[in-house]
Design a protein around this nucleic acid. Sequence first.
DNA 1: GCCAATCCTTATGTATACGTTATCTGCCTT
DNA 2: AAGGCAGATAACGTATACATAAGGATTGGC
Lengths: 250, 250
Amino acid sequence: MKAGRAFRSNRATRPHPVLPGSEDMPARERAYHDLRYRILTGRLAPGTTLLETELAALLSLSRTPVREAAIKLAEEGLVNIRARHGITVCDLSLCDVAEVLDVFSALEIRAVALVARRGLSHGEHNHLSGLLDRMERYTANGNIVRWSDLDDDFHSSMVSLCGNARLQRTLGEYWGQQFRARMLILPLRPVPHQSDKEHREILAAVHARDEEAARHAHERHRARADAQQLALLKNHLPPGDSTDSQEDMR
Amino acid sequence: MKAGRAFRSNRATRPHPVLPGSEDMPARERAYHDLRYRILTGRLAPGTTLLETELAALLSLSRTPVREAAIKLAEEGLVNIRARHGITVCDLSLCDVAEVLDVFSALEIRAVALVARRGLSHGEHNHLSGLLDRMERYTANGNIVRWSDLDDDFHSSMVSLCGNARLQRTLGEYWGQQFRARMLILPLRPVPHQSDKEHREILAAVHARDEEAARHAHERHRARADAQQLALLKNHLPPGDSTDSQEDMR
DNA sequence: GCCAATCCTTATGTATACGTTATCTGCCTT
DNA sequence: AAGGCAGATAACGTATACATAAGGATTGGC
């Protein structure tokens, strides 16, 4: 069924932490990926405001594809479009991150439950288990940056096996916002012994096809990890009463 | 069809089962709402294919706003855009509905848990309780159509109290697809005594601010109701291996 | 008679032009 | 001096024009 390709299709949930190389895609997608990349890597800092015309000039395109890209980024919560005031890169408030994590975790928990229901092939289990091996080595070395990369890979790989394309797609839409928050606290993160332990529990439950156990394991993992992340952010972010999300407000 | 305007911001989760009256909104939004309305009410039947130009003519607009509306509808899973082949109204396969319900219920369960955490004001509880009263009367009368309207109202009203704007927004994006499935099985639906009972349990748990109980009550409700819905649809829909969703496939 | 290649048609993607409206500024009035 | 109104500027929303490429059809060759 799903043997070979299986993972790797993290693209669905993990759309471009790096820019693949400005391939030959339609201009609208180039604009979208380019801007997204610049925002996620901080090269377009939160608060930066640009007009459609300026963005178009920046990307050497006309307003039409840039506009469509901006709309998509706004729907993902990365920028805020205010008519006649330009397109502003959202700065994440604590409140925003809490909202994002709430949605993200609810969906991810469901995804893990689905994977448990469907079961893992031998290769899939090996891949995930291998990721955890490497993460544990990084934990031992105290290399949080590399660990974090693999953590994301583990979560994304798991989700990519859930078999629900819509679920993957929506998780992908939230991935960017979650990624930004994750990057912010990266240097503050304690050594993730507890996460390593929880990941093993999750994988074991999924491998055993115990849907209930998998759901609970992942639920606990996300609840704890999200709470920790919010606690770390609390000292480094404005509380923000749902900052410049996108809707109304004026 | 839709009775008494509900009360307030159901708009977030319940975007336009009826057309508000072609208000003076930007053309792009008019196009979006108009097309969405036509699809949800079946006036644009599944399988219908129109070119951008034809849609533009249909709505007396130029291609630009129609195109943006079509993209948004495609992201919601209501139409499928195939370059040079036109914009096709998706027909829901059983597989699609299963995916939608999976995402929808995961999010709704989380929303109900949030409402339980935050608690209900006196007025809010009264409103929800009043809805259940009226639903139970319709159940007694066997008026499934009216009951279904209020059921939607109950779920949407509950969600609108969760306090997480992103959660509401994403639920709203899935609402259309879920609505179409709901309409399909409306005439097949048995008298919903069980749902009425479960709704009372959910409201009681939320009112008692018992987050765990609320989550479990809603989880059971959705699991049972979704399974029933899928069972009813099974005889009336093609199984469909993820029909014309939108990605790849050419 | 069937298959393939080329040409034509046309839908889309992108660029640009145009009109409307909002914001900002400056001046006038109170 | 302060506030309001009016006018100008320009950004956005929409319309349209243009170029590219894909699909289909027709014709010719095997």
